[in-house]
Design a binder for these strands. Structure first.
Length: 514
RNA sequence: AGCGAGGUAGGGUAGUCUGGAGUGCCCGCCGGGCUCAUAACCCGGAGAUCAAUGGUUCAAAUCCAUUCCUCGCUACCA
């Protein structure tokens, strides 16, 4: 990847986003997963020398926020402030570093950009007014489709919905059908994984209808962004929410930054919102004369007991609590290792414990600790090899080298779980090598040979500290400080075959959990 | 109903695109070894008609067809 330089010089930036969660509910495991995936990709790209920019934020302009606030009898703004904070806390606790956190209620940072985007689409002739007729439940303050009704009644209130007619602005999505199909098909807008791409294509081929992008201000309780030149309407939350990807990097406010960073390199999203990102969003951008994002990376859902987590099933795991119990590295490791990167995966706290204990503590942590402790106790913290290593040493280091390349390939394709599996394989190879080489015997019988073995072990630890950099920031920092290395690029992951490695007295990298 | 994803030892998974001995990983179980390390680690073992049927092929978990089962999405859910 490092050999790519030539073409990438001009576009050495890397702009990645998370979707912005609704503030009307608390953070759940899915948000945690998305934050972690985004952060790993961002940190990896940094290692590859890119100038990385990350945005995240919260979606606050929906009617649901108003309703949820009313239920708790707090002012909507206060409610949003509070809940937005909990997502910031999640980002902090799980180690998602962001460069911009945009709240869609932020008039200065966000609203101007949305207005501008609207106007651009309007000027392209893609926004028009139309009467919309639908089944409306006054209790829910929401429209229902016929298929959603239970015996013709509102599923929530069991009352018959009213037929309500209202005027909305619509976006001429139908006009972009062909262009969208081409974009996706040619990977100009890449949808990952492939199965999601197929899904989007088949959806486009079913025919695209224009969609509503505004709501009457009255029905929105005055909450939300006013439609430019029409105060009676508010911008539909999706049009508004997607714009965050633009306003987060200065659209409508800091053109220089925006020019530098757009288009987005990756939007990380959950499978439930593919349509908005792979269809609506690029269409809106094309209409506004902006470039489309390069890639939409779609992850699955975190389930519990094989089912989607939901409050009614009572199987929701609170990520903030889980983070409190198992720490940033523990939760990151678990989510990346046990939840398939692009598919649904089951979460269980029991599994978190066994995974941390067996793999993190028992395998990776133990290898590092036994190696560094041995060096510290028996070699005063420095091992040196000047000549050539012997067969077994060369063999294990070559093996590690191969795994490093594999991990890099996986990371470059955003196969985060595979990369982590490679890391585990490296630690396992290290453990095996250590065991077979019996340094605890050679330390008295053949000190030179013992030092070669420990040097080899330390070299593998070095590799691990670099590979862990994207995945487990805390552990990587600790380990690199024990090894006195300053991680600058992915190249540092290549194992050393000779030289000197100085080590400090190590503390265990990970704590065993009861 | 339409679209999508799955079905691989007791559980969870990788492998499927690009066919080549059921090959691998984690948990659990059984046995042995080791003792540097956070009572950890290493080695070995038991356990699978790779959902079913039919086909293509010298060869199928892998490709094709059909069937059964599970799950998700279907337009304001990460």
């Amino acid at each position: 990847m490092v050999g790519y330089k030539g073409i990438c010089l001009m576009t050495n930036k890397f702009y990645i986003t998370t979707a912005i969660p609704y503030v009307n509910a608390s953070p759940h495991m899915g948000h945690a997963l998305e934050f972690v995936q985004t952060d790993v990709i961002a940190r990896y790209q940094k290692l590859e020398g890119r100038d990385v920019f990350v945005t995240t934020g919260t979606d606050e302009n929906s009617l649901k926020s108003v309703q949820a606030a009313a239920k708790e009898k707090v002012p909507a703004q206060l409610f949003c402030d509070r809940n937005s904070e909990s997502f910031k806390k999640l980002a902090k606790d799980i180690g998602l570093h962001y460069d911009a956190f945009i709240r869609s209620s932020d008039k200065d940072a966000h609203w101007k950009g949305v207005e501008r985007l609207w106007k651009s689409c309007f000027d392209s002739g893609d926004i028009y007014k139309k009467t919309y007729k639908g089944l409306y439940c006054t209790g829910c303050e929401a429209f229902y489709k016929e298929s959603e009704l239970v015996n013709g009644l509102c599923p929530e209130h069991l009352t018959p919905p009213e037929v309500v007619q209202e005027e909305n602005y619509f976006f001429r999505l139908s006009r972009y059908e062909q262009k969208l199909e081409e974009l996706i098909l040619t990977n100009k807008l890449k949808v990952t994984p492939e199965t999601r791409k197929n899904e989007v294509l088949s959806y486009i081929r079913q025919g695209l209808e224009d969609f509503s992008i505004s709501r009457p201000a009255e029905r929105s309780k005055g909450w939300g962004i006013p439609v430019p030149n029409d105060d009676s309407q508010k911008v539909y939350v999706w049009f508004d929410a997607l714009s965050v990807y633009l306003t987060g990097i200065g659209f409508g406010r800091d053109e220089k930054l925006f020019e530098k960073l757009w288009p987005a390199d990756i939007h990380v999203i959950g499978k439930g919102i593919i349509r908005f990102h792979a269809i609506y969003w690029p269409a809106i951008l094309m209409s506004a004369g902006l470039e489309v994002p390069k890639e939409v990376l779609v992850h699955g859902y975190v389930t519990s007991g094989g089912r989607k987590m939901s409050k009614s099933l009572g199987n929701v795991a609170d990520p903030l609590k889980i983070l409190g119990r198992y720490g940033e590295d523990g939760v990151r490791y678990y989510l990346l290792r046990k939840i398939p990167t692009f598919e649904d995966g089951d979460f269980s706290e029991e599994d978190v414990v066994t995974t941390i204990n067996n793999e993190l503590v028992g395998n990776i942590g133990n290898f590092v600790h036994r190696t560094l402790t041995f060096i510290y106790k028996n070699f005063g913290g420095e091992v040196r090899v000047d000549g050539a290593l012997e067969g077994a040493e060369t063999k294990v280091l070559m093996e590690v080298g191969t795994l490093v390349s594999e991990a890099e390939t996986s990371l470059s394709k955003n196969r985060l779980g595979n990369g982590l599996a490679d890391i585990l394989a490296i630690a396992a190879a290290g453990n095996k090598y250590f065991q077979e080489s019996k340094p605890w015997e050679t330390v008295t019988s053949d000190r030179q040979r013992c030092e070669r073995v420990l040097f080899t072990g330390a070299s593998i630890c070095r590799t691990l500290s670099v590979l862990l950099y994207p995945y487990l920031p805390v552990a990587s920092d600790k380990l690199s400080s024990y090894l006195n290395i300053d991680i600058k690029s992915f190249d540092d992951a290549k194992p050393l075959f000779k030289g000197s490695i100085k080590t400090a007295e190590p503390q265990p990298l990970f704590q065993k959990r009861p």
